[in-house]
Amino acid sequence: MLETSARLLRLLALLQTRPDWTGAELAGRLQVSPRTIRYDIDKLRNLGYPVHAAPGVTGGYRLGAGAKLPPLLLDDEEAVAVAIGLRTAGAMEGIEETSLRALAKLEQVLPDRLRRRVQALHAATVSLAPGGPAVAAETLTAVAAACRDRHRLRFGYRTHEGSGRERDVEPYRLVHTGRRWYLIGWDVDRGDWRTFRVDRIALRTPGGPRFTPREEPPASIVPKGVDTALMRYRARVTVHAPASAIASHLPESVLVESVDDGTCVVHAGGETPMRLALHILSLDADFTVSDPPELLEALRTLSARAEVTRRGSAREGQGVAPFVHGRLGLSPAPPGQP
């Protein structure tokens, strides 16, 4: 039979694995009597673990949430996952220092075999700067709670152009594309599903009333193409290459539509015309694009710069290959433009 301290740890681990346990189930797992289980449950309560009991034949025990956080029991894989998550936390602003403090506490008590696994992963991983704007942790948790509790959200929303609008939304889901956080919700005033960038949301207090959940939004709204759809500048680019070849080099959030075996359409976006142009050029394939005008101007600017570089390199005898204007597939330039 297990010693009392070891048995308490086993009992706590069992209570954390699923919501409800009967006394008989726990007694069978630990090979003790139901009376001993009741005794051990009282011990856990005295240590600060809120274990709730339901009376009756079908009653049982449930580990609830208390006024303070008691120690947690994690298995090997859970401990490694938490350590990695704390190390890479960067999508929310204001929690970097808190994450490092929590990580230091966790690594201090990790067994050597797990600490070596975590340290090996950290040593072999290079973290790049986040690609999108940071979002306050308080905003994310408030939006997530509204999604869970089915409370409307009232917030000010800053558009692409910088203007502000008041929104009344029934929140559905948070979506993280790796670059940005988005809220998918039913816009009450517009009577339709909408997608909002969370970094542009200014929550109003108090929030709205509870609402009855609607049918799930169409699959087209989450999450494929959401990152592109909310960019300030967008383009529908015909790329003269198979969709499979192009899609393999793009994030999953970018929508790529196959036209035939050798052609596809890419829905590209960027915060500035130049970023959009560079994004399209990075596809490394012939393409055709007709709008927006700001994108065409950015591509012509890049073409002119490349032509100047080619001529300068040629004079120096470096033999750089010429930049082919026809590869861009631009619409005819207005008179007086390159």
Score class of each variant (00 low, 15 high):
Arg10Gln: 14
Ala13Glu: 05
Leu14Glu: 13
Leu15Ile: 06
Leu15Arg: 08
Arg18Asn: 04
Gly23Ile: 04
Ala27Ser: 06
Gln31Met: 02
Arg35Glu: 11
Ile37Gln: 03
Ile41Thr: 03
Lys43His: 12
Arg45Cys: 13
Arg45Ile: 14
Gly48Met: 06
Ala54Lys: 13
Thr58Met: 08
Ala65Trp: 02
Gly66Ser: 08
Pro71Ala: 14
Leu72Asn: 01
Glu78Ser: 12
Ala81Gln: 06
Val82Cys: 13
Gly85Lys: 00
Leu86Thr: 11
Leu86Val: 10
Glu93Ile: 12
Glu93Lys: 12
Gly94Ile: 04
Ile95Cys: 10
Glu96Ala: 15
Thr98Glu: 14
Arg101Ile: 01
Leu103Asn: 05
Val109Lys: 00
Leu114Lys: 05
Arg115Phe: 06
Gln119Cys: 02
Ala124Leu: 13
Gly132Trp: 00
Gly132Val: 03
Ala136Leu: 11
Ala137Pro: 06
Glu138Tyr: 03
Thr141Ile: 12
Thr141Arg: 10
Ala142Pro: 03
Val143Arg: 03
Ala145Lys: 10
Asp149Tyr: 04
Arg150Gly: 00
Leu153Phe: 12
Leu153Pro: 07
Arg154Asn: 09
Phe155Thr: 02
Asp168Met: 01
Val169Lys: 05
Trp181Glu: 04
Ile184Leu: 10
Thr195Val: 15
Phe196Trp: 06
Phe196Cys: 08
Phe196Ile: 13
Arg197His: 00
Val198His: 03
Arg200Leu: 11
Arg200Pro: 11
Gly208Glu: 10
Thr212Leu: 06
Pro213His: 08
Arg214Thr: 02
Pro217Asn: 08
Pro218Glu: 10
Ala219Leu: 07
Ser220Val: 10
Ile221Arg: 09
Ile221Asp: 09
Lys224Trp: 11
Lys224Leu: 14
Gly225Glu: 02
Asp227Gly: 15
Leu230Trp: 05
Leu230Glu: 04
Tyr233Lys: 05
Arg234Asn: 11
Thr238Ser: 14
His240Thr: 02
Ala247Trp: 03
His249Ser: 15
His249Gly: 13
Val256Trp: 13
Glu257Pro: 00
Ser258Val: 00
Asp260Gln: 06
Gly262Pro: 03
Gly262Trp: 07
Cys264Phe: 07
Gly269Glu: 02
Pro273Lys: 00
Pro273Met: 01
His279Arg: 14
Ile280Leu: 09
Ile280Ala: 07
Thr288Gly: 01
Asp291Phe: 01
Pro292Ile: 07
Leu302Lys: 06
Ser303Tyr: 07
Ala304Lys: 10
Arg305Phe: 05
Arg311Thr: 10
Gly312Ala: 14
Ala314Tyr: 06
Glu316Asn: 05
Gly319Lys: 01
Val320Arg: 15
Phe323Cys: 11
Val324Ile: 14
Gly326His: 09
Leu330Ala: 08
Pro338Lys: 05
Pro338Ser: 13
